[in-house]
Every structure is written in C-alpha cells, then in structure tokens.
Amino acid sequence: MRAAGLHLGLVGLLLAAHFVLPAYHHGVLARVMVLAAYATGYNLLFGYTGLLSLGHAMFFAAGMYGAGLGVRFLALDPGLALLAGVAAGALLGLAVGLLALRTAGVAFMIVTLMFAQATHLGILLAGRWTRGDEGFVLQGPERVVLGLDLGDAAIRYLAAWALFSAVLLLVLRLVSLPAGRVLVAIRENEERARLLGYDTRAHKLRAVVLSAAIAAAAGAAYALLFGYVGATFASVQYSILPLLWVLLGGAGTVIGPFLGTLLMFYLIDTASGLTPAYMLVAGLALVLLTLFAPQGLAGEVRRRLAPWLP
C-alpha cells in the first residue's frame, strides 16, 4: 500500500509539475521522463533479474528507427509509429535474448555489447535511408497525432508523462507479482530458482523482451517528441548511460531509475554552468557516491529508512 501510494504520488507530482514548472525545467523534465522510462526498462533486466546488458542502446535505437523510418517512409501516424517502434524493439529483444541468454555474467555483457555495435554499424550501413550519423529530422506535420502536435511543449510533456507513468506502474505491478519475484530469485540464485521448478530460461527471456520493448518505447517517444532520429543514440555511450542512471538512483528499486536520470541531468547541467570542467565534477560525484551511497539513492533510502520500498 505504502509502495503504491508513493509511486502514485510521484505520478501525481509529475502531473502537478506540468502546471507550475518554469519553461526550461518543464522541458527538461519531459526529456528526463522519456529517458527515465528507458532506465526503468533497463533496471527490470539489470536490477531485478541480475543481467547486466551493455547493449541496450540497440533496443532504444530499434524503437527510434522503427518509429522514425515508419513515419518517414511509410507515412505512419505517430501513434502507429510508436507501436511499430515497440514491436521492432521487442523483436530484436527476442532475437538477442535467444542467443545472448546462452551466456551469463561478463560474457552476457560482451555479447550484448557486440550485438549493439553491429546494430550501430548497420544503421550507418543503411545510410541511404537513415542518413547515418547525421540522422534525420521529423518535421512538425509528421508529428501530429489526433490533432495534437507533439512538438508543442505542453503536449510533449503530457505524452512523456503518460509514457513514464505507464512504464513505472507496469514495473511496480510486475515486481509485486509472482513472475516478478521469480526474477529476483533468479538474480539472487539462479540455480536454486531452477531447482524450485521455475523455467528460469523462459523467465529471463521474457524479462529481456519486456525490457527491450520498454527501451524501444522510450526511443520511439524520443524520436516523435523531439523530432530527431540519429545513430548517436545507438552508440555505446547510450548503452552505458542507463546503467549509470540506474546505479546512481538505486538498482532493483522501482523509483531509482527516475531519480538517477534526474540527478545525473541536473548534476551535469548545473556543473557545466559553474565550470568548463564539468565532467570532472560529474566524475568526482560518481566516485563519492560509490564511497558514501553504494546502493544508489533509493537503495540507501531502502537500507536506512524504508525497508518496504519495492
């Protein structure tokens, strides 16, 4: 109950923020919510199932290009394009999952990393349609759904809010279900979970596909809300970022990925205003965090104050 209250409270708070935030922070929060959805999907696999992927950018990109190419070449309506992006991500997740789940631990990290690199290069190879690294812009008229212009600040914010809320509540519900508890059991001791009669392979595969689909939804939303599709989002850097956000906010907590994404953005944004050496500040902050809050923000709260936090 407390958990449901807390997360519904966050959803409500974010909706209320729409009406009070100054324009700049309003826009920032819209972007942070989209990226936090990505991080939340990542956390499902990393934080709850214990599978560290270094290739999630391929799923984000699958959603981004699934939606972006759908709009550009098939003239899809943005709503359908979002679905196309999610489907592309889920399919890629299924294919990668079937292969990569033969491995575990560091080998899983490397296999996902390499599939993601192949995806990134594939996007460059298909430059005739994707325009490679330069990418392409989705123009205003291509981003109107049901008469709503996704380029409008208010509509963008509410769309991002809807996506993030749906993902947050989905994951919150999932981890309280038996299926979610099996994932945690796999994380803690896969051998034991298997001995208890669970088909751990199937559970892990489902987690990969769902995590990939959520990442793809975020990628598709980014393309549609911010009007740009580019190969940078398929690069290694965008696989490492969700890991960083999740570790910062608290792996294996539902609220952590959002906190981590938000904090990381403001850390860089504020530090860059103070000094050109803002990466130095960010680096120091990360080192200090590992020294003094090793479980991430939400993880520390759970450890010290609120053991009930999901």
């Binding site: 100054p22 324009a23 700049y24 826009g27 690294d133 330069e134 990418g135 392409f136 812009v137 989705l138 205003g140 380029g151 409008d152 600040a153 911010f226 009007g227 740009y228 580019g230 190969a231 940078t232």
Partner: peptide, 27 residues
C-alpha cells in the same frame, strides 16, 4: 532560449548536432 534568455543561438559545426538541435530551435 528558456534559461539564459538568449536572443539567438549560433555556432554549431557537426552535422548531427545541428540536426538534433534544429527541431528544438524551430519549436
């Protein structure tokens, strides 16, 4: 546009940064 109250934006070189930024400048 929103925080620094700049009159205009200027100076980008790399194409992918231009492509990523221009939609926001337009909006």
């Amino acid at each position: 546009a929103l925080e620094h109250n700049c009159d205009i934006a200027f100076g980008t070189l790399f194409s992918h940064v231009v492509m990523g930024s221009a939609p926001r400048a337009g909006e």
